[in-house]
Amino acid sequence: MDWRKILVAVDNTPTSEKALRYAGAIVGHLPGVSLYLLHIYPEPPPDYYRSGRTLDEYKKENERQAQEIFDKAAAVLNSCGIDDQAITSECRMAIQKTISQTILDIQVRGGYGTVVVGKRGVSKAEEFLFGSISNALVHHSKDIAIWVVG
């Protein structure tokens, strides 16, 4: 895996922005680096459709939010000296999988050698019940570097 192919998992949290700034500071002026911004959102809750809303509406709303996240992220990376040409982005729904599993599936398929993710700092109980994406990535990834930024 080429470590310079970097997948950055982004959302609209301050920790995500911190991770992005960290990654930008590290690789900002290195040649041959590409950054792939990935925003994964979960499937809608079980009662979502009962109000008459559609999956299409749910996806569009999430894609709209993702675009805002990507625009902010690109501005952060540009300020670190990373060209727009080195930045790509994608937004996807985690279908029948968790967010961390989806990130790792995309990482494997895309051959990304580095994954960057923010860390919220959750309690044990919170981790048990709601999960920790950064911990899951660390535990289940293979042959790559994971940068967990807290």
Partner: peptide, 11 residues
């Protein structure tokens, strides 16, 4: 049913 997208079976 419950909604825990990252830990769907935790509860």
């Amino acid at each position: 049913d419950f909604y825990l997208p990252e830990k769907p079976f935790a509860l």
